[in-house]
């Protein structure tokens, strides 16, 4: 049954989520959270107008960028509002997810 596949994936996500905190971010959480970003940042990596592509950044760099918005060192009303409500764990999860994406034009 195809559902089994989905269930197995869900369980796998759960196992990954239980790995130690200092390991990579929770990619499944990152994937869900990324659905908030895709209204502006295309997951294909395509860049249009004033919205940069955010896929493929090394995770540390991604975390640093997000922290700069969260701490209001980088100016952008939209991104400051986005980052303000994200915990460090959530930013790490997003970083893990976006690091794993490859350009798909």
């Amino acid at each position: 049954m195809p559902q089994n596949g989905a269930v197995r994936l869900a369980v796998l996500g759960f196992v990954l989520a239980c790995t130690p905190a200092d390991a990579a971010g929770d990619r499944a959480l990152g994937e869900y959270l990324s659905s908030e970003c895709t209204s502006c940042h295309q997951s294909s990596g395509k860049q249009v107008g004033g919205i940069p592509a955010i896929i493929g950044h090394p995770a540390e760099q991604f975390v640093a960028l997000m922290n700069a918005y969260r701490e209001r060192q980088r100016d952008n009303q939209v991104m400051q509002a986005v980052a303000a409500r994200l915990s460090s764990e959530e930013i790490a999860a997003l970083a893990a997810y976006y690091e794993s994406l490859k350009p798909n034009p």
Binding site: T38, S39, Q42, K46, Q47, V48, G49, G50
Partner: peptide, 15 residues
């Protein structure tokens, strides 16, 4: 802001 608006439209319609 307008450049964001243009980028958003492209992204949400792709989404």
């Amino acid at each position: 802001n307008q450049a964001e608006n243009v980028g958003w439209y492209a992204a949400i319609t792709a989404d």
